[in-house]
Simulated assay, not measured.
Amino acid sequence: MLDRIRIVLIGTSHPGNIGGAARAMRNMGLADLALVAPRCDPKDRDAFSRASGALELVDGARVFDSLEAAVADCTLVVGASARSRHLPWPMVGPRALAESLPDALAPANAQAALVFGREDTGLTNAELQRCHRHVHIPTNPDFSSLNLAAAVQVLAYECRQAHLALDTTPADEEASQPFGVEWDNPPASHADMERFFVHLEKTLTTLEFHDPDNPRQLMARLRRLFLRAHLDSMEMNILRGILGTMDKRLAATMPAAQHDRPSKRSDSGPDDSA
């Protein structure tokens, strides 16, 4: 299980935090570290110094330009956030998250990503909306600021406890599958979901159901809906097929200029009310 959990750090500004996160991962048996647009040199000596015996994790960390690229192959993406949001999103605690991972990672193609934001500002709204759910570490409300490496340590620890619990679980429960049964198709990847959301927004814009110039929270709410459903690959193909058929019908009945009207991404702005 642990070898299919990726730690993703976005916009890290201090190399020591990269090293500290790597050490926390190594302590708990995690080895997949991804860095998204780091604001420091990931190979700075402070990173290796803080990593202590986890130098190979720092040296082998993959660097990506965007969150989408870092989690493209993942089937479960969880964003660590302490932010109060106007649009509620599925939220779990560290232990509940870890206890859900054995089932979530049961399919052969399953891969989970735990995403951590910048030391100063955390994750943006757009980044949080690309996560299936959010995890909140319940800190002291009078002093809630948590060091990045410490946050990684908390979640990595809970993941390891869930992994160790598998050794004491009866064999028939170890073979459990998502939703309590052996599912007939693997889960859709994050890249598949992102292509679906782009297609959905384009079709809804053509239908004039969605106005890119006044998006409100439509696409954010639709993201929440479909990510909460945790679609499998066949369900994704069905939805893309429905959209494709709608596109063909629209192309046959609407002027070309209207059908080709460009859409703008609407889910990266502030949380305005719906």
Rank of each mutant, 00 (worst) to 15 (best):
S145K: 12
L155M: 08
A165R: 08
S145Q: 10
L146R: 05
L146W: 04
L155E: 00
T168H: 15
F143Q: 10
E158R: 00
L164C: 11
A149D: 07
T169K: 15
A149F: 02
L148R: 10
A156V: 03
P141V: 11
H163V: 07
P170C: 14
Q153F: 01
D172K: 14
C159R: 00
R160Y: 03
A162M: 07
Q161M: 09
D142F: 11
Q153H: 05
A156W: 00
S145Y: 04
D142T: 10
C159Q: 04
T168L: 14
D142M: 12
A165M: 05
A150Q: 06
A171T: 11
A156E: 02
Q161D: 09
H163Q: 12
A162H: 00
E158G: 03
F143D: 01
Q161S: 08
A151Q: 03
V154S: 01
T168R: 15
Q153S: 08
S145W: 07
V152M: 05
Y157R: 00
A156P: 08
P170R: 14
S144N: 08
A162N: 02
P170L: 12
L146Y: 03
Q153P: 02
P141L: 11
A150H: 03
A171G: 06
V152F: 01
L155C: 02
D142N: 15
Y157C: 07
V152L: 00
L166Y: 05
Q161N: 11
P141Y: 02
N140V: 07
A162R: 00
D142V: 12
D167W: 09
V152C: 04
D167L: 11
A151C: 05
L164N: 12
H163R: 04
A149V: 00
A162Y: 02
T169V: 07
L148P: 11
R160P: 11
D142H: 15
R160W: 04
A151N: 01
L164V: 12
A149M: 09
N140R: 14
P141E: 02
T169R: 15
E158P: 04
Q153A: 09
L166Q: 13
T169F: 07
A156M: 04
V154K: 00
L155K: 01
V154H: 00
A149S: 14
A151W: 00
D167S: 13
A156S: 15
D167P: 02
A156Y: 02
A156H: 06
R160G: 06
T168Y: 13
L146G: 01
T169L: 15
S144L: 10
A149W: 02
F143K: 08
H163L: 13
T169G: 05
A162F: 03
S145I: 13
D172W: 13
C159L: 03
N147F: 05
A171F: 05
A171P: 05
A165T: 03
S144F: 10
C159K: 01
T169S: 09
P141W: 05
A151F: 00
D142K: 12
P141G: 10
A165V: 04
F143G: 11
Q161R: 04
Q161I: 09
